[in-house]
């Protein structure tokens, strides 16, 4: 069964980058996998939530695989993923 899902993805799993996948959902869910999780989990989550708020998105599932991306990388990747999702 392949129901076409609203989904977008951007980034890579190279060092200093992150792979963001965002899909429509019935509630807000953010999932973070990071090599610097112990230090920056909260910071990464904040960037994601702030960006989603800026775009007015409440019901999405974001999963982020981070390889030490800086804040603005995360934000840029997320914004691209959102645009790709909305283009569908």
């Amino acid at each position: 069964m392949s129901d076409i899902q609203k989904i977008g993805s951007a980034g890579s799993v190279e060092s200093n980058d992150c792979l963001v996948t965002i899909s429509a959902s019935d509630h807000l869910e953010v999932e973070i996998q990071s090599i610097v999780d112990a230090f920056f989990h909260d910071q990464i989550e904040k960037v994601v939530l702030d960006t989603l708020k800026e775009k007015g998105l409440n019901n999405v599932k974001v999963s982020l695989q981070d390889k030490g991306a800086l804040d603005y990388t995360i934000k840029a990747r997320l914004l691209t993923a959102i645009e790709r999702m909305e283009a569908k």
Partner: peptide
């Protein structure tokens, strides 16, 4: 030299283009 990363990244983005996530 990060060769596996290059390959896996490229493959994942190609799968994404085919709507395989």
């Amino acid at each position: 030299e990060n060769a596996a990363t290059l390959l896996i990244n490229e493959l994942i983005s190609r799968l994404n283009e085919k709507n395989i996530y």
